[in-house]
Design a protein around this nucleic acid. Sequence first.
DNA 1: ATTGTATAATGGAATTATTCCAAGATGAGA
DNA 2: TCTCATCTTGGAATAATTCCATTATACAAT
Lengths: 136, 136
Amino acid sequence: MEDLINKYKGRGFKLTPQRIEILRFLEGNTSHPTAEDIYREIKKKYGTVSFATVYNTLQALKERGELLEVTIDPERKHFDPNSTPHHHIICGSCGKIEDVFEDYSGALKLPEKVLEKFTATGNHIDFFGICADCKN
Amino acid sequence: MEDLINKYKGRGFKLTPQRIEILRFLEGNTSHPTAEDIYREIKKKYGTVSFATVYNTLQALKERGELLEVTIDPERKHFDPNSTPHHHIICGSCGKIEDVFEDYSGALKLPEKVLEKFTATGNHIDFFGICADCKN
DNA sequence: ATTGTATAATGGAATTATTCCAAGATGAGA
DNA sequence: TCTCATCTTGGAATAATTCCATTATACAAT
């Protein structure tokens, strides 16, 4: 927590109580929450927090490269505070998203045909599956 | 076109003029259109077509496995009538999406740790890049 | 060809996710 | 402590998508 506060000190990122709560919720969180998940969580402590605050904060963190938007779920955006490169797997039944830490970069060479038209900057793999809980 | 009509004959898929127009627009289309792109196109010929019709038809095609939803763009869904397995690359500047036909399946083994929790059913790679048009 | 019926099309309202905005509040540097 | 750039808030606005009641129609059976 102290670490969190120090991390943002003097960097043009105003540390408000709501933001601190959002940062604490996100720190080390691997559940890939949606904006609503975050909103509901912060509301427990700050009953008047607004979605605007949540979205503003998420936006600020994204701009700092400290938060990634996960687009694996077609219905809504999820957020991931782990900004080190990794991939995701989503359960087709319950929608649970988990991290896949494995480096496939060596294998993901683009075909010549594509390289003629695009300069590659990165990639992300969506894995699909069924989780143990849903296999009942 | 005759092919298209025969393809759907007697399969519980009612071929209305609007649907035929949507099918014709999608057939062989590699532009990854959004629902609105499709709506605007069909509207040229059928001025009263509604978004409901477009979404209903896309839904029916998805259920038949003849259309895929592409979730690479965080802002909206794109649709891809090519249901053979392939990946995508999106231009970070203009948003253009193109196909990547390359089989990486042999390389995409999931770590044991993940396999203990999920039965894998598939995967899709999002490549990010900048297209030639945008490199100016 | 005619008809019956299940299915589709339509317009508009409803829903959901997200962004915008104006007004008041506040963190943090001077 | 004071100042002000930045943040928070509630509500309105936007955008994507879905829902619904009504009318229309494709097509299978006659």
